[in-house]
């Protein structure tokens, strides 16, 4: 089977070279050159000196953080509730099913729901609250993004909750823990791997939801993802676009390092 290894390896290596390494090298190359292909750090200088870019970066980070946080807030209890239901497979499927509807269709639905005479404003109208402009606000963007990402947070948390041996919960209760103590000291730490992969699955895509910022956030919400799209497809300044892209990659690496950091335990002398 030895010579066959090359047969399997070659096409795969070709793929890695062409679609993983080459694009990375190219985007890095573009970020380090100007429009005339001269080597320069000017793009990065522009990014870190201008307030606009830094504010944009902070904004993206903040939005992604909020989206991830609200997702976790909604999804964790839902996943926990799911572990106590009968027919869990069925209910889980109902949670997953909306992910099969194209993201843009769901975003499009909110254009109707959030419009000045849409469902939400009709509902508010019942209480005499006049039409509120919800579209093209931070709220609308964060709400829709959270809505879209919820299933991707419920899934990993549910899976990690299911892996907890029920005997551990009995053991905790046996040792005198109340429901909340069991949650805090046993369930939460043991489900952390699921929370972690949920955060990774949501935080990073949230940085690049440019279609949502365009459709729901109007041009008021500008994230790094929106900027990349704008520089590449509208203003055609690929060098600046690539620079923002490289910074996005760096942010992503930081998030991954932060969430997968191992905790150090202090030693106890007896």
């Amino acid at each position: 089977m030895k010579k066959n290894r090359l047969l399997f390896l070659l096409p795969y290596l070709l793929w890695i070279g062409l679609f993983v390494i080459a694009p990375l090298v190219l985007i890095l190359g573009y970020s380090l050159t100007d429009a005339h292909s001269h080597l320069t750090l000017q793009n990065f200088a522009a990014f870190f000196s201008g307030g606009t870019f830094l504010r944009m970066m902070a904004n993206s980070f903040w939005y992604a953080l909020l989206i991830t946080f609200f997702c976790l807030l909604v999804s964790y209890p839902a996943a926990l509730a799911l572990t106590r239901l009968k027919n869990q497979q069925f209910w889980l499927m109902l949670i997953i099913l909306p992910t099969w509807i194209n993201l843009l269709l769901k975003a499009y639905a909110f254009i109707g729901i959030f419009s000045r005479s849409g469902m939400v404003n009709q509902f508010l109208g019942l209480f005499g609250i006049g039409p509120v402009g919800i579209m093209f606000t931070d709220f609308a963007f964060i709400f829709v993004a959270t809505y879209i990402e919820i299933p991707f947070m419920v899934m990993p948390i549910y899976n990690s909750l299911k892996e907890i041996d029920p005997a551990l919960l009995s053991a905790s209760s046996d040792l005198g823990a109340s429901f909340w103590q069991t949650f805090r000291y046993v369930i939460w730490p043991l489900s952390w791997p699921g929370v972690e992969s949920g955060i990774q699955a949501i935080f990073i895509p949230s940085l690049s939801l440019f279609m949502l910022t365009r459709l729901i956030g109007g041009n008021r919400v500008i994230t790094l993802g929106t900027a990349v799209e704008e520089y590449f497809l509208t203003t055609m300044n690929w060098n600046m676009g690539a620079t923002i892209g490289v910074i996005l990659i760096a942010l992503m690496l930081i998030v991954m390092l932060l969430t997968s950091r191992k905790q150090h335990k202090k030693e106890i002398e007896l």
Binding site: D165, A167, A171, D174, L175, A177, L190, K265
Partner: peptide
């Protein structure tokens, strides 16, 4: 009476030790 309030403790079949905690 709730299990957590009984002065009775249990050694479980597969020990049910908390995997995220050390011996101490």
């Amino acid at each position: 009476l709730d299990a957590s309030k009984r002065h009775i403790n249990t050694v479980f079949q597969n020990y049910a030790l908390f995997p995220h905690l050390n011996v101490y």
